[in-house]
Simulated scan of single mutants.
Amino acid sequence: MNRTMITATNTLTQLQKQMDMISNNMANIDTNGFKRREATFTELLYQQFNNQPNVNDEANRLTPNGIRQGTGAKLAQAQLVMAQGSIKQTDRPLDTSFIQEGQLYKVVVQSENGNDILYTRDGAFHLSPLGENELLLVTGDGNPILDENDNPIVINGEPKDYSISENGQLTVTMSDGENQVYNLGVVQVNKPQFLEQKGNNLYGLPANFEGLNVPIEDIFTELVGPLRDQIGIRQGALEQSNVDMSKEMTELINVQRSYQFQSRSITIADQMMGLVNGIR
């Protein structure tokens, strides 16, 4: 295998990852609150050949001296794009939509290691029976929604009406006329590049986060106390995905053409080696 084949093969594997990312974006175009990912590339290490022994002969050269032979490109980052999606009015009391970018609800998910706190932008809430005269506020997948103190929101009694203010305060009016008030747990994402998609429209920190030596306060800002005035929530509406199908299709075509170009490079390199081996 010559250098051309190695370079093309390295790039092909990375282009496949980008195609998978675009496919995932397109598959979630109708997912509430879904945020698309965007790939950025960087070149791999290159080899420098200093073929000119006399530097003075390169005095008027506009490009760097020598010959630089690369080994392909790699996927440098899968950036989470937190741009606001369109708002769809539903008039359902437990449907909510963020109107501020970068804000996420906190939910608790059961895992092999216990309960993990994850984050979602999907504001379609539901009520799940927990016990006698107890209702648990959950997502569409049954994951409990947390309040600002990281406790599940449990409604005691028979609810009659729901009101959610712009700063994320849930007021439940009971059948006996009393009100139960809860503050929804909301965080502001400062560095979305640290978030990983955990499935079911949930986001979380990577498994190797502790080894990154990055304070969690630099990634999230807990919107509690006076900071709750920064929360922007609209009741009776849902945020749609921020995926633009036309843009994704255009990007997919470009990636497919790059993939074909790299594949063609391997074919041509194989034909050249066949010609060399056929010389008598």
Rank of each mutant, 00 (worst) to 15 (best):
M21W: 04
E239T: 01
G274K: 12
T90M: 15
A207H: 11
D147S: 04
S163M: 10
F261G: 13
L227K: 10
L12M: 15
A27F: 03
F34E: 01
Y46Q: 13
L252W: 06
P93L: 03
N167G: 13
F220T: 01
D161S: 09
V224H: 15
K247S: 10
N54H: 10
Y119R: 06
R3Q: 14
N32D: 09
E38L: 10
N60M: 09
F41G: 03
S165V: 00
Q188K: 06
Q79Y: 12
T31W: 01
P144S: 10
Q77R: 12
K88S: 14
L12Q: 14
L130S: 14
L238G: 02
L137R: 02
R92A: 15
I268Y: 09
D270G: 07
T11Y: 06
D91I: 08
F49S: 14
G278D: 13
D218Q: 08
D122P: 05
G33E: 06
N242T: 00
I29E: 04
K35H: 01
L130T: 12
I155E: 13
G131K: 07
S263T: 01
L62F: 05
Q47K: 14
D176G: 05
N25L: 04
F98R: 02
Y119V: 05
L130P: 12
P144K: 14
N201D: 08
G199W: 07
D244Q: 11
T96L: 14
I268L: 12
D20E: 04
L184Q: 03
A76L: 07
E210T: 06
G204L: 14
E134P: 06
T267I: 01
Q169H: 15
N213K: 10
E38P: 09
P152S: 15
H126T: 08
N143Q: 04
I253K: 13
R3T: 10
T42H: 12
V81S: 08
Q262P: 03
D270W: 09
S86D: 03
Q180M: 02
T7W: 07
N201H: 06
T250R: 07
L252P: 00
N201T: 04
G70M: 00
T7N: 14
G236S: 03
